[in-house]
């Protein structure tokens, strides 16, 4: 769950948006004759004026839909967040998950949806006279999901009692909540288009009701409700309305 492969992929993923941003910021030499006189009064006014609301961002996760081709589990989520002082970003995220595992010794289906509510805090690049709306943030979310699940045609053997059989469960729905911490970056690559990546740490998982058995995969959270799960987000974002 947490090994060298994971660390390498995390490092590559978090660096990608930063590299894209640097490619956009190529410095251009301005000849002395073209420089405009500096209006000191305007600059001072801009510095002193801090608007609360700056922009709204709409994001779509592209990592999980691509991963579907390799893992067979479909996940997709969209998120919206609002920029306040370019420091605080209240956010909401909704998503869906579906997984149909047809194996030789079992057939397991699980599907559900989730919603996460919280906020991010931007540590860098928050001054009013900034040229780009990059952000390096940490955030917290509360997540809630409902997941339906069913195990069918499970081949299980008991060597001591010399028992074998094919077993199935009834379809059930579990309601689950958790706390999530995020750290990530979002960079403005071209006008209102952004790219971002984030690491999610999901913990403090809890079921809302007791069930005789629980899903092996929970929408939005992952597998094994009793442990801490890690996830990667890689998203494309559009900023609107523009603040300038």
């Amino acid at each position: 769950m947490f090994n060298l492969k994971f660390l390498c992929s995390l490092a590559c993923l978090l660096c990608l948006p930063l590299l894209a941003a640097r490619a956009q910021e190529t410095p251009v030499a301005v000849p002395d004759s073209a420089q405009q006189p500096v209006d000191i009064a305007k600059i001072a006014a801009a510095k002193s004026k801090k608007s609360v609301y700056e922009a709204t961002y709409l994001s779509a996760d592209i990592f999980d839909p691509i991963a579907t081709a390799f893992t067979g589990k479909f996940e997709f989520s969209v998120a919206a967040d609002v920029s306040l002082w370019h420091r605080l970003f209240p956010a909401i995220e909704i998503g869906v998950m579906g997984y149909n595992q047809q194996q030789e010794d079992y057939h397991y289906t699980t599907a559900g949806g989730f919603v996460k509510v919280g906020a991010n805090y931007n540590f860098l690049n928050y001054k009013p006279n900034r040229k780009k709306d990059h952000a390096v943030f940490a955030g917290v979310r509360y997540g809630y999901s409902f997941t339906s699940y069913q195990l069918q045609d499970a081949h299980i053997a008991n060597n001591y009692w010399n028992e074998t059989g094919v077993y199935s469960n009834d379809k059930r729905t579990a309601h689950f909540g958790w706390v999530e911490f995020q750290i990530g970056v979002r960079v403005q690559v071209y006008k209102q288009f952004f790219m971002g990546a984030a690491l999610e740490i999901r913990t403090f998982g809890h079921y809302y009701q007791k069930e005789p058995y629980y899903p092996s995969t929970i929408a939005g959270f992952g597998s094994d409700a009793n442990t801490t799960n890690f996830g990667l987000l890689y998203h494309l974002t559009y900023q609107f309305p523009t603040k300038k």
Partner: peptide
């Protein structure tokens, strides 16, 4: 007891749990 099958994970397969 009441046996019920449970999928641990794709890697681990199914196990019979009991109540």
């Amino acid at each position: 007891h009441q046996p019920y099958p449970q999928l641990i994970s794709e890697e681990c397969g199914c196990v019979m749990f009991h109540s």
